[in-house]
């Protein structure tokens, strides 16, 4: 059957034919984090697996955030129901969910002819006290 895995900003996922995709943060996000003291980066994951193959994925943050802005920030990565739940207006260091597994099985291995993707959302939230 047909499989597809796509990751990106909400509404702008990019297909990953190899099955591995990345969402990056860099200088632009670091500047926002320093300026605002916090940062929320929503990530959308679209999964399709037709036939009787299920699809499972693992989310891996960097092993080392380095010694810069992100390295000195408090960082959380967690699933959210919608991108609206991944905004600095609704998040705070005190309101973060308990750490959960960084993996998901959006498509079970029961037979599926569905052509539409199963869409899931993740949130990277960082706070920095300057």
């Amino acid at each position: 059957g047909y499989q597809s895995f796509a990751v990106g900003a909400p509404g702008a996922t990019v297909p990953a034919p190899t099955g591995t995709a990345v969402r990056t943060v860099g200088p632009q996000e670091a500047a926002k984090l320093v300026r605002d003291g916090e940062l929320a980066v929503p990530v959308q994951v679209d999964s399709v697996s037709q036939g009787n193959k299920g699809l499972h994925y693992v989310v891996s943050p960097p092993e080392d955030w380095g010694s810069g802005v992100f390295g000195s920030a408090d960082i959380a990565l967690f699933p959210v129901a919608s991108p609206r739940d991944c905004r600095t207006e609704v998040l705070s260091p005190q309101s973060l969910p308990e750490p959960s597994g960084l993996e998901s099985t959006p498509v079970p291995s029961t037979y599926s002819t569905s052509t539409g993707p199963v869409t899931e959302h993740w949130c990277l939230y960082a706070s920095h006290d300057g």
Binding site: G19, T20, A21, T24, P27, K53, V58, S109
Partner: peptide, 24 residues
């Protein structure tokens, strides 16, 4: 801390498929 000197960090999403009876 200089945000302009921040390296690019990647959050990686790795998918696998599995068949019925297999552990995902």
């Amino acid at each position: 801390l200089d945000p302009a000197a921040e390296p690019v960090h990647a959050i990686t999403f790795t998918s696998t498929t599995f068949r019925p009876g297999e552990q995902p």
